[in-house]
């Protein structure tokens, strides 16, 4: 198999890799905020349940969570295994990343000085207005570096979808490597991931720069 054929075949899987990447971000970024707010809830039960949820998701391997989401329903209830593996893959990724994002959000929210809330309260901002207009924009700026970190990790983590046989780029690479007894597909995969992350770095860098207008 020529290098070109290899790259073409793996590029086909790259679409699925991108699907995992973008769908995971689409769901986990807002879900993480909900989890963070539940985690900071004044209701003890809600916050401890959420804390437990976060600790399980952060304390167990993503690979295990992928298996649990994909095959768990079958082993527990005899339910059918999803034919379209993108669904369980995105569910597992989104939940896992939401847990990480939640802790980043929480750190960011707790780092905002109380004076910002008080100033907004005295000026008559409602709770929602205070959060959306005053707190959240400042949180976003503060957490951007940590978010970039997670997003870069997510690019590499997409390769874990192979554990549930989702034919993304790395799975295809492994198949080619195996049938061709060649190490080349792994080199190609490495280059793909590197370039992907270069793009991510560039985009995130642009966003950080746009938030640089204030300190």
């Amino acid at each position: 198999m020529s290098l070109m054929t290899m790259i073409v075949k793996m590029s086909e899987g790259l679409g699925k890799t991108c699907a995992i990447f973008f769908l995971t971000l689409l769901f986990s970024l807002p879900l993480g905020m909900i989890v963070a707010l539940l985690r900071m809830s004044k209701n003890r039960v809600v916050s401890s349940v959420t804390r437990f949820f976060i600790s399980v998701l952060r304390g167990t391997p993503l690979m295990l969570q992928l298996l649990a989401v994909t095959y768990g329903p079958y082993y527990l209830f005899g339910a059918n295994v999803a034919r379209n593996k993108l669904i369980p893959v995105v569910i597992a990724f989104a939940i896992n990343y939401a847990a990480y994002f939640a802790e980043i959000y929480r750190g960011g929210i707790e780092s905002i000085p109380i004076g910002q809330y008080e100033a907004a309260e005295v000026l008559g901002y409602s709770k929602v207005q205070t959060f959306m207009r005053i707190i959240l924009p400042q949180v976003v700026k503060r957490i951007m570096p940590s978010i970039t970190n997670e997003v870069v990790t997510l690019v590499k983590d997409t390769s874990m979808a192979f554990t549930v046989s989702y034919q993304e780029m790395f799975t295809i690479g492994k198949q080619i490597a195996n049938s061709q007894t060649s190490f080349m597909p792994f080199v190609v995969a490495g280059v793909f991931y590197y370039v992907f992350n270069d793009v991510v770095d560039y985009v995130m860098g642009r966003i950080e720069k746009r938030l640089d207008y204030y300190r």
Binding site: Y71, Y74, N80, V81, F162, S165, Q167, T171
Partner: peptide, 18 residues
Amino acid sequence: VLTCDSFLKCFTELAGNA
């Protein structure tokens, strides 16, 4: 053709009608 990384997964996919 669905390529799984273990036989257990192949059989689970079959059992779960995937």
